[in-house]
Design a protein around this nucleic acid. Structure first.
Lengths: 248, 248
DNA sequence: CTTTGGTTCAAACGTTCGTTTTATACTAGG
DNA sequence: CCTAGTATAAAACGAACGTTTGAACCAAAG
């Protein structure tokens, strides 16, 4: 008896091609025959290695999310050790959480843009088993980062921080999904002002550069209550900003 | 021959229940039998009234998006007329675009939270016919609002504005989809700090109150280039903010 | 060599899918 | 009354689905 020697070729091939097909057509829209014929393996191999189609999807994500969320926890722990008890800056927390993810886009060894797109598209899938799977995969890392943000923004109500974490996840998820109405309308991907097509790695880098400031700006925006108070005090005032809106 | 007298009951019933089922299980995950048996109509009625399952989905969205995007155009036109040629404020543009959408959540006559969730979940669906459909439905309104933002932020590179519009759409889409990892982990919906369940209308109102400041903060965040320049000038400085991050 | 257990394969299983067909009722116009 | 035209109904269609079966293959252990 060989000690649990699975055939690495077939198993990994299935995962690689499943990742791509699920990304392109969604979970329900992808048949096992599409995957196995693309991978050049027998149809029954999926059920042999992963038990079921659901099991296959779970393994596709576990393979990537296990590494990603482990890395996220590791990076956050390192930052907190370096800070020696003082709260981290919000930008550090965001960089650790979103930067670690976005760097996958430039790293084909961990799935590259294919996996990022798959993740973005699957995070809003309503299927019950997918949602509970993500919940368990993300539970620890979300909890840790939530606490880090609470400490980084001690004067902001915690409920408000949770809301904004929610919004940031959304902006990221949708941005990496890359099925945007804007993109479809403009034809190509977002690309450049000139509109030339970009390879996946440049695309990932541009995305990260653009997304991080947006998230930070959203996270630190005035609270609704603060805005209402400001409006009462000086109804027409404009807020200072590094952006183009003129200072008052 | 009666002049195109469709049976409003059956047709509308199908649309109403299709909306709900598609929201709960996704397009591919919903069978026509699920819809027709929930609506209490004959299976063949869908093909009779809408031609196909794809045609049904398109009509589900056309019914709502037609009104929504018409309203968006109307509101923007009114604002621009009132401004008499001067650029609008970014907050006005966002309010017109996102506020008009979010108010649907409180308005069951236009689909309420059911439609908002369906929209959020379907915007990232990779199916080709869905994406091209959305592209054509949104083309005009996106173009108009893009130009309004260009005028509202004349000193910001246009490519940057398109990126941020993209991110804002994502934050909104994901937020209204309401299938967030955070929500699954915390059990209930986002609800309140106390965690009590909220009815759909209060939920919609809370969401709008929280989302709009976030979007505005993200839209007006410092540009990547500005941040790099600031970092060169004073590497450790903190930005002033109405939020809690303390000034140094 | 024989045996054993992990792996691949072709074929078939029963179910469910979207769609079509055919027949029947109902509603006006002539 | 009769007749189109519209709408609903029940039943069936072929195709595609996820899964299972049972035999074949193959490397290593006994």
């Amino acid at each position: 008896m060989s000690e649990n020697k699975l055939n690495p070729d077939t198993r990994e091939r299935i995962l690689d091609f499943a990742e791509r097909e699920f990304m392109a057509y969604g979970y329900e829209g992808t048949s096992m025959r599409m995957i196995t014929s693309a991978a050049g393996v027998n149809l029954a191999a999926v059920n042999y290695h992963f038990g079921s189609k659901e099991g296959l999807l779970r393994e596709v994500f576990r393979r990537r999310l296990g590494w990603l969320n482990g890395e996220r926890l590791r990076v956050l722990t390192t930052l907190e050790e370096q800070a020696k008890g003082t709260p981290l800056k919000p930008s550090q927390v965001l960089e650790a959480f979103f930067g670690t993810l976005l760097r996958i886009g430039e790293d084909d060894a961990h799935g590259g843009m294919t996996f990022l797109r798959l993740l973005g598209r699957t995070l809003t899938d309503p299927a019950e088993f997918i949602r509970t799977f993500f919940a368990s995969e993300y539970a620890e890392v979300i909890e840790r980062y939530k606490l880090a943000l609470f400490r980084a923004l001690p004067d902001v109500p915690r409920a408000e921080i949770v809301w904004r974490l929610h919004f940031m996840l959304g902006a990221m998820s949708y941005a990496i999904a890359g099925t945007d109405v804007l993109q479809v309308i403009t034809g190509l991907g977002i690309g450049d002002a000139a509109g030339e097509a970009l390879d996946a790695k440049s695309e990932a880098k541009k995305l990260a550069e653009r997304l991080m400031p947006f998230l930070l700006g959203g996270l630190r925006a005035p609270l609704p209550s603060a805005m209402a108070a400001a409006k009462r005090a000086a109804p027409t005032r404009r807020r200072a900003s590094d952006l183009a809106e003129k200072k008052r």
